[in-house]
Amino acid sequence: MTLVLDGVRVTHGATEVLHGVDLAVARDELLVVLGPSGAGKSTLLRVVAGLQPLAAGRVAIGGRDVTRLRPGRRNVAMVFQTYALFPHLTAADNIAFGLIVRDTPKAEARERAHRAATVVGCAHLLDRRPGQLSGGERQRVALARALVREPDVFLLDEPLSNLDAELRVEMRAELKALHGRVGGMMLHVTHDQVEALVLGDRIAVLRAGRIEQVGTPDEIWRTPATTFVARFVGSPPMNLLPADGPLPGLASTGQVIGVRPAAVRLGADGVAATVERVEVVGEDAHAYLRLGEHPMVARIPAADRPAPGAQVRVAVREADVHVFDAVTGQRV
């Protein structure tokens, strides 16, 4: 069982939203589509769900071409950012709703709803209505509603973005564990790089309707394919400097070097720099430097942070340098 998007194009009038996207999700894989607002992430989900017509391309699920099939015949389930629960129904009825409208016997629908609720940890909430539930509880109900249908593909549209930071971490772990228990293909979209790196078996980085890179979290982090991926995945973002900039000899003319802030070393040797400001983040500090006309960020232990205005020296090991083409932004 696989999900395949082949040359998918979507247009809104004269505007092309998705530019010939090719993407495949393997059996029992959780693939995260990561990108900024406006990248086309939700449009991609709507294409798979059958809610968005195509200008070109095809969608196949399990080898079956579903491009022209109605949403109800695709056997996919979607979890929305806003939960989309019926406020007048109990959690049990919300979970079972999709089964009931498909003429599943009520007793069977109730039993399947209870099983799904047990899997996601909300069986004790089945008699409550959405207004009586917290954000995390409503999200569990929404997940159970998708799970109860036993779909071929789970589509998750930024399902954790409305939760507070602590609950988001908790639900992230539970979602990863849920996928480990039930398997299936999951296509999860988010703008949160940490969420993508933690959840994804693989990550597809989407920018302005085009796939920039597909790879494991480790590949995305260690070998970004473009300068966009290098800057988008990482906090603080990767430093990008011209080859003829303040760190010469690390790349050729017409190239750009990239250095993760954690790889920037402050010490007695190296290139002179001025500390413009320092941000302390727990045990780390982000030192914002100026090397001539070029800015650079170093992530260092908070205990070793220099004072703003201090003169320091910056060194980078050649092994820690990423090299990109200055025109295309592609990794060299």
Rank of each mutant, 00 (worst) to 15 (best):
G98A: 09
L45V: 09
T15A: 15
R140A: 06
G135A: 02
G57M: 12
D244H: 11
G215S: 08
F80N: 10
T226W: 04
R149M: 05
E16Y: 09
R313W: 07
T43K: 01
V323R: 00
G215L: 07
Q311N: 06
D325Y: 10
I300A: 12
Y83E: 04
V278G: 03
A39W: 01
D103Y: 13
D6G: 11
V280R: 02
T90H: 06
L156A: 03
Q255C: 05
A91D: 11
Q132K: 00
A39E: 06
I100K: 05
D127L: 11
N162A: 09
V17T: 15
L44I: 10
N75Q: 13
V141Q: 01
V205A: 00
E29P: 04
V76S: 00
G209F: 02
R210W: 03
T227N: 05
A142C: 08
A77R: 01
R299D: 11
V259I: 14
P248N: 08
A173L: 05
Q193I: 05
P246R: 03
I300R: 02
Q132P: 01
E283Y: 11
R231Y: 06
E150H: 02
A14Y: 11
T11I: 12
R313G: 05
A173M: 02
L89Y: 08
K106E: 15
A144G: 04
E137N: 09
H179V: 14
I211W: 00
A230W: 03
R58W: 12
V189M: 04
F154N: 06
R181C: 10
D28A: 12
L175C: 00
H286Y: 15
P237K: 04
V66H: 00
E293D: 12
E137I: 06
E158C: 08
D157G: 06
P248Q: 09
V297W: 01
P248S: 04
F80M: 13
A92R: 08
V8C: 14
F232Y: 13
N75H: 11
A204M: 12
F228A: 10
V8T: 14
P301H: 12
F228R: 03
S37Y: 01
R58Q: 14
L125C: 09
A109F: 07
V264S: 05
A251I: 04
I61W: 01
D284P: 06
G180E: 14
A287F: 09
L147G: 02
L163T: 12
D244C: 11
L51D: 04
L241E: 02
T216S: 14
T82D: 13
V264E: 07
A109T: 13
A92V: 14
A173Q: 00
A177K: 11
